[in-house]
């Protein structure tokens, strides 16, 4: 009977315990106040029923009581606020060195692309114990990436990247749900997150037929689309040199400074005129409608790799131009 009636979700991520702990506290406090109110109503209703208590005693109110039941609940709420915010901040900040997986959501399926170029549909394979960061975007309506066993959820939007992360702690297969209503087959937009032992994961990774890493695919696109003619790896290009740009502040023509994150790179490809780098002219054509979500992700991965390659280069005091980053 109980096997067919689970009343609680599995706990399979590093954060799940924290979320559940706060959840239990909330249940305890709520149960206390609910029972308190129910009990008071019941006791008053019985004790002061008209047949035994025909004359009501008029009471105007009580300032100390009003203050008490304003301030005590407020104080308790602030505990929830602090704890809830701590969890939320952890969820919002992926740890450094997390393995990155790109996800494209579309009506009504999930496509995942790993750094080595391998692809998955409606299944996400991850090794146990490893931080996994998802960089997601939608091809049509808003979707939402929800894995109850990990206690994480993040909307997936068209036109921008959103991210989430988790560290799976238990080998197994878990539900992946789309939780933002997205049309006809919304309830069919489900999949699985398959958490594997690291060795099994490696075996699975090397089993797939991959056509180069995501970044190297991006590099090919960078050539094909003609990006390289302006974005040269020296100071002579008509567009900014993209080496080492990712993750750094960029000074704009209008004086603002922005961090070159995934969304900035994405916007610069699709709406080049939105944020012009200081010292350059708004001459770049838009690639809106010419690059698919998958290709965009490859391009972003390539620009990212230019920064990583430079860091590595700087560390080994080797300032050569990065040409084939992350190649296998």
């Amino acid at each position: 009977m109980w096997k067919n009636l689970p009343l609680f979700p599995e706990r399979a991520s590093a954060l799940a315990w924290q979320v559940d702990g706060l959840y239990f506290l909330l249940i305890a406090v709520s149960a206390f106040f609910t029972l308190l109110i129910f009990a008071l109503i019941f006791v008053f209703a019985v004790k002061y029923r008209r047949s035994v208590h025909p004359h009501a005693v008029q009471i105007e109110g009580s300032l100390p009581l009003e203050l008490a039941w304003t301030l005590i609940p407020l104080g308790i709420c602030m505990i929830f606020f602090a704890w809830g915010s701590l969890i939320y901040f952890q969820e919002a900040r992926p740890p450094k060195g997390a393995m990155e997986v790109y996800a494209v959501a579309k009506q009504w399926m999930w496509k995942f692309e790993y750094e080595n170029g391998q692809r998955d549909i409606n299944q996400l394979h991850v090794p146990v114990g490893r931080d996994v960061k998802l960089i997601m975007s939608s091809q049509d309506a808003i979707h939402s990436f929800f894995v109850p066993a990990f206690r994480i959820k993040m909307d997936v939007l068209p036109g921008r990247f959103t991210t989430t992360w988790f560290r799976p702690t238990k080998v197994g297969t878990y539900h992946l749900f789309c939780s933002q209503y997205c049309g006809t087959d919304h309830s069919g937009m489900i999949g699985q997150v398959i958490v594997m032992e690291p060795a099994a994961y490696q075996a699975w990774m090397s089993g797939g037929a991959s056509s180069g890493t995501l970044a190297s695919n991006g590099q090919q696109l960078f050539q094909q689309l003609g990006c390289a003619t302006c974005h040269r790896f020296d100071t002579q290009g008509r567009g900014p040199n993209l080496t080492g740009v990712f993750g750094k502040p960029v000074l704009l023509e209008d004086g603002r400074t922005v961090i070159a994150d995934e969304n900035y790179i994405r916007e610069s490809i699709l709406i080049p005129g939105a944020k012009i780098v200081s010292g350059f002219k708004p001459i770049m054509p838009t690639f809106q409608g010419q690059v698919s979500e998958e290709n965009l992700m490859a391009l972003v991965a390539y620009v990212k790799s230019l920064a990583q390659a430079q860091q590595k280069g700087a560390a080994s005091d080797n300032s050569s131009v990065p040409d084939t980053p992350n190649s296998q």
Binding site: Q18, V19, L22, Y23, L26, S30, C77, F80, F81, W83, G84, S85, L86, I87, Y88, E91, S144, F146, P148, R151, I152, K153, S179, Q180, Y181
Partner: peptide, 15 residues
């Protein structure tokens, strides 16, 4: 109050 609590809302939002 559960829903106002950020870390909990992530789990129960849209459920």
């Amino acid at each position: 109050i559960f829903l106002a609590t950020l870390g909990i809302d992530v789990q129960v939002h849209d459920t």
